Computed example of a mutant assay.
Amino acid sequence: MSKALQKSRIPQGFAAFFHPITSTTARCKPAKLTDAQGLTLWVMPNGSKYWRLKYRFLGKEKLLALGVYPEVSLKEARLKRDEARRLLSEGIDPSAKRQEDKLTAQVAAANNFEAIAKEWHARESHEWSAAHSVRVMSAMATHIFPFIGALLHKS
């Protein structure tokens, strides 16, 4: 083991894995550093590094993005890999689950009080004077949205 790795704060068992991550430079095409159970670190030609998980679902090979190195550490990437593998064992496609969660969040964000109030304002304000329209929106932004703007509307 090199003296640089000995001096670093990398745990002893992980030195063999971390050394390629920190020393890998950009190439003409993405370099892939493998960990275990489908987890790989892709080093792109521009030098950026991405965690990816290769898995199979219903006989089809898929690739799931887990984050950008170093924002997502090796430990976090392994935890995300384990969660994705747990979903696979339950018969759920991790990629489809992620898309479903994202869509649910978007619908929830569009279905809160503030979004509905702004929609109402846009629909009704053409019947008001410009000054009144500004006063109504200003009053809602000052007195209502900070307190109940994020509440979800349940229909």
Rank of each mutant, 00 (worst) to 15 (best):
P30Y: 05
R86A: 15
K102E: 13
L53R: 03
A84V: 05
L79I: 13
Q37E: 15
T104H: 12
E71H: 12
L74S: 01
M140K: 03
M1Y: 09
A122F: 09
R9C: 07
K29I: 12
A96Y: 07
T104W: 07
Y50H: 14
R86F: 14
Q6I: 14
E90K: 11
R56Y: 15
L58Y: 14
A96V: 15
A122E: 15
E114H: 06
G38Q: 02
H132E: 07
L41S: 01
P45S: 08
D82T: 03
N46M: 03
K54F: 15
L66T: 02
L33T: 01
K97V: 01
P70N: 10
L58K: 14
Q99D: 15
E76R: 06
F147P: 00
H126P: 00
N112L: 06
D93P: 01
Y55I: 03
D93F: 02
K75D: 08
T24R: 03
S155E: 14
L74Q: 00
I148G: 03
V72K: 01
R9S: 13
P20D: 07
Y55C: 02
P30E: 07
G47N: 06
R135Y: 08
R27E: 13
E124G: 00
P11Y: 06
E76V: 10
K154H: 13
L41T: 02
H143V: 01
L53S: 03
A16T: 13
P70D: 10
P94D: 04
A26K: 08
Y50I: 03
L39Y: 02
S23Y: 12
G91N: 07
S73Y: 04
F145H: 05
R135M: 11
E76K: 10
D101M: 13
G59I: 12
S129E: 06
A77H: 02
P20Q: 09
A105R: 15
A130T: 12
F57A: 06
S73M: 06
A36E: 14
H121T: 02
M44Y: 08
Q12I: 14
K54D: 13
P30H: 06
L64M: 15
Y55P: 00
I21Y: 01
A65R: 04
Q37W: 08
V43T: 01
T25P: 00
W42K: 02
I148F: 06
E90N: 10
M140L: 15
A109D: 14
A141E: 15
R52C: 04
R78L: 05
S2I: 01
S129Q: 04
I148E: 02
G67K: 07
L103D: 13
T24W: 00
W42C: 03
R98T: 05
R86M: 12
V43C: 08
L39N: 00
L87D: 09
